[in-house]
Design a protein around this nucleic acid. Structure first.
Length: 871
RNA sequence: GGGCGUUUAGCUCAGUUGGUAGAGCGCCUCCCUUACAAGGAGGAUGUCGGGAGUUCGAGCCUCUCAACGCCCACCA
């Protein structure tokens, strides 16, 4: 290690240390996994960040949690692999490149597919390294020697094989269906990529004249412009209003086309006019109705969202955008006096998840995955407990979606992605689905590419060498152990990984899915660039340090996986803690005078030594339990509490008068290891310094590999700890007394105790140091005028203060204490007087309550005596 | 329409099998006591959203109401 680490600098400079430490780990290849290791394996695949992006707070949280689990298991003797990589992010990336082209006034068609892809690859190559570099700032201990990309050769081969196999099994099909079409992205998208937005619209009622007779039928629609694609009018078969019209025909306004009136259960009698126009090519429900009644599918809107130029669309409307067409159509309907009524109507409109454009349901030829058969095993895996969600409530969410799953539209009319491995004969049009083009001279490949999530769904095994199931990585690290991600991609990603993993590897790709909350701004709003409320984790790292960021985020994780609200200032919490650790360690290490050999032996243990060893041991126990149960926030608070409020506030302070170097160092050493998964850099930096003074076996000279502390019953010093609590209570009471009477520390005080003689005499030095007590005396019947009093458990402490205090003030002080204690005594006594409580409460609770009652009685009694004497 | 979450100190939130509440920040008083002012000592603050029930006992369990948020569904 270099010079900065030889001395712990008096000022804690997080970034300097963190950079140096990360380099130290990386140079030594500490993160590289050994697939031949005899150790049990623990593996995590990173949710591959998009190559479009930069590190954001979501990554920071997700990455931190994964790194904590990885480091914890590494220290617990597992061969760990954290697999890094990036996602090509089909639509998202293509959109970015197209936006850049648009700045030059170009479209992707101006470049052509080949040139466009070249440009996109250049971008991707640049960005996929950039974001992983940023992950390093988080201290990520992932194995970069294995980093993968969803479009690399291995992944592409896996994608092809999966596609061909699914096709051959009949689980992939190509067909003409209504899909969600984004007119801006110029592609189909899947159901999960469609968001719904509530919009204020109108319900237009339009009168269609009956054919060959008087009268008309009035229909209600929210999209008048689609009327040119109508194939029928539908009514409910049980609707008496329209009973006589079923089977007749009507004449469409504006175009004069004749369409039938049909009956279908789908129609809701009570909505609108109870009559509905059926447009099979532009509405998913109408599409179904159309199939049932064998209606023609008339396309009137094209892929750009414009009205088509065909015989169905009136010339005035042709070529208009959807929005323009709606206006114009309504105008024309008014002119023809067939617009009966317009009522305001709020409804949900589908929008593209990527660009926000209103979705056009469009009849189109696409590729689909039959999900129902794949979902069966995926449902079973969770129901049987092979895969466990943390928190468990997400299982319900997952199961509900899986049980109602619909087919997945996987083809995208994009250029950036895995081109579908289907080949068409140039002359005959015959289609072949195969790993390779059967004859490049006569066959051309399908132009469409696959949904990004198709390859992401294979991520846990395509990165491990699959389909080569004999590869060492696959054998050692697949299936992976834990998947860590946010709830927003359970359907997109987690569900598909489970389905695909089970189908192709016959095993669940991971056994635990750890779902954390989303990061939000201080007002609870989702962070987004457009809102301008993002906080850049890189800025936070520069300002507060990576360990501070990690610790703060960790401390904000709740077991229920609640969303996390953050603001810049919140990270002072972690920074302050890091600073505390740094300074305390500096103090401890600079106070080591003994040799490494001498430090191996605790020697004789004082009350304080036993107390801190006991506290440490309890902390070790809690930390291990909580990590194993994914209560990561609890881990942070247990670690914080121990170090700051136990070790620093008391033990280190007491060590200034009487120190056991061996224990002082032992506790710090163990603590650094406990904390290392959360705050890796600072703990490694201090540990390195510590190694210059102590021997520590089994650590390979890096805390990264040190054995994680485990609970050891030999450190259960329960009795001693109780005594120590009494010491602390005494000190606190005396400090309180000083504060209330404004007695400066320069004014020494003496005390007289009436109980626990031995203990108090032995802790005199502690009292001296911590409460500036000059002299401790024992006297069962102390009777000193002008004194203040404290009661600590069963001991009355008299503090002669002569003229320093006003006796009346002291009487008031004591009365206040009683006022505080009495309500509790009252309620406890009431409980103990209740036979039902005595009989039905568990005996240990009854005992405890009795004990507390005695304690309160004793204290109140002591205080009352005191008041009497003072009066 | 269905499901889920949240409601606890001024703010942000913890609270693991039910035994009358905690942290951080903020606030008040005092302290540069040589590890740390990114600090130390002391202090104030809550009918745990409303109501009902189960229980000897409810922040925690049951029911109900209310407010806010999220997800799914998508009747034109």
């Amino acid at each position: 290690m270099t010079d900065t680490l030889n001395e712990l600098s008096s000022k804690y400079c997080a970034r300097e240390i963190e950079k140096e430490i990360y380099e130290f780990w990386e140079k030594n290849d500490f993160f590289v996994a050994d697939n031949t290791s005899p150790k049990p394996s623990y593996s995590i695949v990173i949710p591959p960040p998009n190559v479009t992006g930069v590190l954001h707070m979501g990554h920071a949280l997700d990455g931190t949690l994964q790194d904590i689990l990885i480091r914890y298991h590494r220290m617990n003797g597992y061969e760990v692999l954290w697999m890094p990589g990036c996602d090509h992010a089909g639509i998202a990336t293509q959109n970015v490149i197209e936006k850049n082209l648009a700045k030059e006034g170009l479209t992707r068609h101006d470049l052509g597919r080949e040139k466009f892809l070249e440009k996109t690859w250049a971008w991707a190559n640049d960005h996929k390294n950039r974001i992983l570099e940023q992950f390093k700032l988080l201290g990520a201990s992932f194995d970069l020697s294995r980093k993968r990309f969803t479009l690399d050769k291995g992944c592409s081969d896996a994608v092809k094989k999966v596609f061909v196999d699914l096709y051959n099994k009949g689980l992939i099909y190509k067909g003409n269906y209504i899909v969600n079409w984004c007119p801006r992205c110029q592609s189909a998208i899947s159901d999960v990529e469609t968001n719904y937005e509530t919009q204020e619209g109108s319900l237009w009622e339009i009168s269609y004249a009956l054919k060959d007779e008087m009268g008309a039928i009035v229909i209600a629609t929210t999209r008048p412009e689609t009327m040119f694609g109508d194939s029928a009018i539908a009514v409910n078969p049980n609707d008496y209003k329209y009973k006589d019209l079923i089977g007749k025909s009507c004449v469409m306004p504006l175009t004069g086309r004749v369409i039938p009136i049909i009956a279908d259960d789908y129609v809701d009698k009570s909505f609108g006019t109870g009559a509905l126009k059926i447009t099979p090519a532009h509405d998913p429900n109408d599409f179904e109705v159309g199939l049932r009644h064998n209606l023609p599918q008339i396309k009137v809107i094209d892929e750009k969202g414009c009205m088509m130029k065909n015989e169905f669309v009136p010339p005035q409307i042709q070529g208009l955008t959807r929005e323009e067409a709606r206006k114009k159509t309504v105008e024309m309907l008014k002119e023809h006096q067939v617009l009966v009524r317009i009522t305001p109507h709020t409804h949900n409109v589908g929008t593209c998840q990527r660009c926000g454009t209103t979705i056009e349901p469009l009849l189109s030829t696409q590729w689909f995955v039959k999900m129902k058969p794949l979902a069966l095993n995926a449902i079973d895996a969770v129901k049987s407990g092979k895969i466990k969600f943390i928190p468990q409530r997400w299982e319900k969410n997952y199961l509900m979606w899986m049980e109602n799953i619909r087919d997945w539209c996987i083809s995208r009319q994009l250029w950036w992605g895995h081109q579908i491995p289907a080949y068409y004969h140039k002359e005959t049009g015959e289609m072949v689905v195969a790993l390779e083009n059967p004859d490049p001279n006569n066959y051309t490949q399908e132009k469409d590419v696959l949904d990004t999530w198709f390859s992401s769904g294979l991520w846990p095994f395509e990165t491990m060498g699959w389909p080569d199931t004999n590869s060492n990585d696959y054998k050692k690290f697949y299936p992976t152990t834990t998947l860590v991600t946010g709830f927003d991609i359970i359907f997109f990603w987690v569900a598909r990984m489970i389905s695909m993993g089970l189908e192709f590897t016959n095993v669940a790709p991971f056994s635990t899915v750890y779902i954390h909350g989303l990061i939000r701004d201080e007002h609870g709003q989702k962070m987004s660039k457009s809102k301008g409320n993002t906080i850049d984790p890189v800025d936070l790292i520069e300002k507060y340090g990576c360990d501070a960021l990690r610790f703060t985020l960790t401390s904000l994780c709740t077991y229920g996986g609640q969303d996390i609200k953050i603001s810049d200032e919140r990270f002072e919490f972690g920074r302050n803690f890091a600073n505390k650790i740094w300074n305390a360690s500096r103090f401890v290490l600079s106070n080591i005078t003994k040799s490494s050999n001498e430090l191996k032996d605790f020697g004789e243990l004082s009350l304080a030594d036993k107390w801190i060893l006991n506290e440490l041991n309890q902390t070790v126990k809690l930390v291990n339990e909580n990590i194993k149960n994914y209560r990561i926030g609890e881990v942070a608070s247990v670690l914080y509490e121990f170090f700051w409020n136990k070790y620093c506030d008391w033990y280190v302070e007491l060590s200034k008068i009487e120190k056991n170097e061996a224990v002082l160092v032992y506790v710090l050493n163990a603590y650094l290891k406990l904390l290392h998964p959360i705050m890796p850099h600072i703990t490694e930096a201090i540990y390195q310094k510590m190694l210059q003074k102590i021997d520590d076996e089994n650590s390979k000279n890096a805390i990264l590999f040190a054995k994680y502390p485990q609970y050891d019953s030999k450190f259960d010093y329960i009795e001693e700890s109780k005594k120590m609590e009494m010491v602390f209570e005494t000190i606190k009471s005396l400090r309180n007394l000083r504060a209330e009477f404004n007695i400066p520390l320069s004014a020494k005080i003496n005390i007289v105790v009436d109980n626990n003689e031995k203990l108090f005499l032995s802790i005199a030095p502690y009292l001296n140091r911590m409460a500036k007590v000059d002299d401790v005396k024992f006297d069962k019947e102390s009777n000193i005028e002008k004194s203040a009093y404290c009661t600590v458990f069963d001991t009355k402490i008299t503090v002669p203060l002569a003229d320093l205090i006003d006796i009346n003030q002291e009487i008031l002080r004591q009365k206040k204490k009683i006022e505080k204690l009495e309500p509790e005594l009252k309620s406890i006594s009431a409980r103990l007087n209740n036979d039902k409580f005595i009989n039905s409460a568990p005996s240990d609770v009854v005992d405890k309550t009795k004990e507390r009652q005695q304690e309160l009685l004793c204290q109140i009694d002591l205080i009352k005596q005191t008041i009497k004497k003072l009066s």
